[in-house]
């Protein structure tokens, strides 16, 4: 009984903190559902950064100039860094990274569905940096104000690094758009294939989003899926125009009343199909992660064994 009253009081002060825009920190009391919801979102975000290394990583050995190779290597490395920052934020909730990785590999935890699309051409490397990182940035900028301190701080750090990602992607597109006829075709084709999936990155429309309402109330999420998606659509129109490419959405049209672009319907069947395992790369991405992780098991074991030996030697010497 007394426990209940105490919990209510704790919950009350938790909600007051959230209401006053104070951050929640690792040692603070928090409702179990908040912790679970955070863990789900942060670990999913971390997995996305890590799985997201694969489509572009696939071009590290083929980048068409040395400058591009260096830039792409730095970019993909950053994504690994982002994965690290986010695992690090999630670990403050008391779950070790190995557990999160096990959940990813068993399919219990998800990652962003966009990475199940294949990076088929060099143009896709441009489109991914420009559109996929671009969409991620819109989301991440908003998350800098998320209520959980370590997550918010991770986002600040990540956002600082992200803008170079989008710029290098756009620069690739620009070079292609201003290049030969074949390069132009490559750019248009990549834009066509990545535009819609990038819009889907913001998740289902608000009315259909399972986790959205609660996450908004707890200020884990700060803006709704549709608000963020609209921002991205609006900012992308002039960028496509400048490239001189055709907009993939024939219905895109400025609405002066709303002060936003109206746009065509997103193919949600495709969205759910890819989420449910029917993307080109779902199996490939997980298999790659599992293969690398297994291949590294003996190295991790060796590190642990070496550390143990050192400790024993120190103990024996004293």
């Amino acid at each position: 009984m007394q426990g209940d009253a105490n919990d209510r009081e704790l919950e009350h002060s938790f909600l007051r903190r959230i209401g006053e825009e104070q951050k929640i920190e690792p040692k603070d009391w928090m409702p179990e559902a908040y912790r679970q919801s955070l863990l789900r979102q942060i670990s999913q975000h971390a997995h996305s950064e890590v799985i997201g290394m694969q489509p572009e990583g696939n071009y590290l050995t083929r980048a068409p100039s040395l400058r591009r190779k260096a830039v792409l290597l730095a970019k993909v490395q950053d994504e690994a860094g982002h994965g690290l920052y986010l695992y690090s934020a999630a670990e403050t909730l008391g779950t070790p990274r190995s557990e999160m990785i096990a959940a990813l590999q068993s399919g219990a935890a998800k990652y962003a569905s966009i990475f199940n699309y294949p990076a088929q051409t060099w143009g896709d490397v441009g489109a991914i940096g420009w559109l996929v990182d671009g969409a991620a940035i819109v989301n991440q900028v908003s998350l800098q104000r998320t209520s959980y301190g370590p997550y918010a701080r991770g986002m600040v750090r990540i956002c600082k690094e992200e803008s170079f990602h989008q710029r290098q992607g756009y620069e690739i597109m620009l070079m292609l758009a201003q290049g030969s006829a074949a390069q132009r075709r490559m750019a248009q084709d990549s834009l066509n294939r990545f535009y819609w999936p990038a819009l889907m990155m913001f998740g289902p429309t608000d009315s259909a989003s399972a986790h959205s309402a609660r996450a908004m109330q707890w200020k884990i999420k700060r803006e709704t899926n549709d608000e963020l998606r609209q921002k991205f659509i609006d900012q992308t129109v002039p960028q496509i125009e400048f490239l001189g490419l055709q907009h993939p959405d024939p219905e895109i049209c400025w609405n002066a009343e709303r002060n936003h672009y109206d746009h065509g319907e997103i193919d949600w069947d495709e969205f759910y199909a890819v989420i449910n395992g029917n993307g080109h790369c779902n199996r490939q991405r997980l298999a790659h992660h599992i293969r690398a992780h297994r291949a590294g098991a003996w190295v991790r074991d060796a590190v642990a064994a070496h550390q143990q030996k050192l400790a024993q030697r120190t103990a024996a010497a004293t």
Partner: peptide
């Protein structure tokens, strides 16, 4: 560079890339 996304753990992906 072939180690990136193939290293034994994340810290090594980053270190190898460097």
């Amino acid at each position: 560079s072939e180690w990136v996304s193939n290293a034994p753990y994340l810290e090594e992906d980053i270190a190898c890339a460097n």
